[in-house]
């Protein structure tokens, strides 16, 4: 990371700490804001959060590693999360998975070369009555068919 980038990051985190307060309990909201704005929480940001909240960097890392929606490595612009829980599985998740993999040319856990799509599995999205379902960034798409899934993927901007 460049020094300029580091300074900007520090400033941003200082503002977040001011907003949520320098308590341990502010850790999650701060991390969520960083995640939302940067698509990941870089090493440096973790250490800065730790310094400003007076906790150890490893504790911040521990929290990040616990939550699936927080990540330390940068991911694609669109994070596609396909539900893999029982109902969606019964309703044909496997076919959707194959269609998406073929469309994007990557397997689950990977990011496309142009950094546009990241493909992941998610556990229950709570759309069991409308499965199979997938989540692209913050939007849920339900009642998927392979054709519909491909169309949605092509349509996101």
């Amino acid at each position: 990371m460049l020094i300029l980038e580091k300074n900007a990051m520090t400033e941003e985190i200082e503002k977040l700490v001011e907003k949520y307060g320098p308590e341990r309990s502010s850790l999650l909201p701060i991390l969520q804001d960083i995640q939302r704005d940067h698509k990941s929480i870089p090493d440096f940001a973790q250490q800065e959060v730790a310094r400003l909240l007076d906790i150890h960097p490893v504790e911040v890392f521990s929290v990040i590693s616990f939550y699936a929606f927080l990540n330390t490595e940068a991911k694609g612009k669109f994070i596609v999360r396909l539900c893999r829980t029982i109902t969606c599985d019964i309703k044909g998740k496997e076919r959707i998975a194959q269609a998406i993999e073929r469309e994007l040319g990557i397997t689950f856990g990977e990011t496309t070369k142009d950094n546009k799509y990241t493909l992941e599995y998610a556990n229950c999205l709570g759309m069991c009555d409308q499965g199979p379902a997938m989540l692209i960034n913050d939007i849920v798409y339900a009642n998927l068919t392979p054709e519909k899934a491909v169309k949605i993927l092509k349509g996101v901007k």
């Binding site: 906790i55 150890h56 490893v58 504790e59 890392f61 521990s62 590693s65 616990f66």
Partner: peptide, 13 residues
């Protein structure tokens, strides 16, 4: 973390 306050080990995952 508590006894020594060095903070190297934590549970991950």
């Amino acid at each position: 973390i508590d006894l020594q306050e060095v903070g190297v080990l934590e549970s991950i995952g």
